[in-house]
Design a binder for these strands. Structure first.
Lengths: 204, 204
DNA sequence: AACCTAACTTAACGTCGTTAAGTATCGGAG
DNA sequence: CTCCGATACTTAACGACGTTAAGTTAGGTT
């Protein structure tokens, strides 16, 4: 079964070539520059060739998004070894915001855009692939050591509130940082303030 | 100068007819259904007629957005009379989230989309037209009564952190409520939790 | 009565996502 | 060795989009 495997491998290769081209366009020129035709240009194929490998544009973007979710979760691996859960939470907040500010296009697609039904390639609940699970782990740890206020007995609810708070910093910055309406404090200052804010809210 | 005034009035009328048609499409079918051609259909004009009244589609959307910012700020008028600043803050959070959840399309355009350089028709700093100013007023009041922790001595920074926190609840819900990845707590529960969260963080 | 201009319309351009139909390549069966 | 069918593409086209150019009509001014 030599040729069959080769075909399979080649098919996988061109898939990743398409994804890579899309990712480059996406990162450098924003999501609105990612068109089937421009992706096709980059890999020197006709636009319709892409449809042989992806159902449609949404499916392609969803797969891009999936890769990014994994890359995002991997950012937290470095801080997983921090023993003190309070410090781990603080660093997690910084890592989260940094990712969003360094990759605003990706962040928008991942967390600020409705559609994109996620695929199955990420192992749910595994903290090294699933950042939400990582956050829940921190909260469970804090709770286990009796550091949380007693009101925060629901891990999911607590995780969702903390996530919302830190997401708000990133999302508002991405969407509104060029808005002269508000006299914005520097985003780094807002981030640190939010991290303190979260700590004051949940710790005893 | 009778006819001249009439012309002016008619011009204003058709402008608002266009805006109304756009708003209806927008609210009922989402922003992606707002096309120049469909707006034109609704008012029984040709698509190009709109360009006589608005520079382009972005300008039209920006103007829509402006109306919505004013309507948004007016929602807070009812709670402006609440004497207790703590309770006023709590109610403001609820009003904010309710607006976002009841008008997700508008909320997305107003607070989750980068572009839309705001126009000049809103009086900045006037709490009855500018919701950010309204929030700052609450914080200044809290501070004036010595209810805030001493760390929150910067009104702008404090307002921006609180806004981010509550925006995060709305924004995540709009973008991710249909995501099965996370076992979401009901948005009402998250909202109340965030309001408590904010209070615990900033009050003495 | 002639004219000018504001307020439109029709036609068109170039873009987009996507589908239909055609073509070449190539592994495997007779 | 030849033929076949599937695989992997291409070209052509459709309908929708934002927008511009050119043409038309109606009403106030001179």
């Amino acid at each position: 079964m030599g040729p069959k495997e080769r075909r399979e491998r080649e098919r996988e290769e061109i898939r990743t070539r398409i994804l890579d081209a899309a990712r480059e366009l996406f990162a450098s020129e924003g999501v609105e520059s990612v068109t089937m035709r421009r992706i096709a240009d980059r890999i020197e194929y006709s636009p319709t060739a892409i449809y042989f490998h992806f159902k449609d544009k949404d499916a392609l973007l969803a797969e891009l998004c999936d890769c990014d979710f994994r890359a995002f979760a991997e950012n937290f691996a470095a801080i997983a070894r921090i023993a003190d859960p309070v410090e781990r939470l603080r660093q997690a907040g910084r890592v989260y915001v940094d990712f969003g500010l360094m990759h605003p296009s990706h962040y928008r697609l991942m967390f600020m855009t409705p559609k994109t039904a996620q695929s199955q390639t990420i192992e749910k609940g595994n903290p090294s692939e699933d950042a939400y699970a990582f956050l829940k782990g921190i909260i469970a740890d804090l709770r286990g050591r009796g550091l949380l206020r007693e009101e925060y007995d629901n891990v999911d609810l607590t995780a969702q509130v903390i996530w919302s708070a830190i997401h708000g910093v990133v999302a508002l910055d991405i969407a509104k940082c060029h808005d002269q309406w508000v006299e914005w404090r520097p985003v780094a200052e807002r981030t640190e303030a939010m991290i303190d804010f979260i700590e004051r809210a949940v710790l005893r």
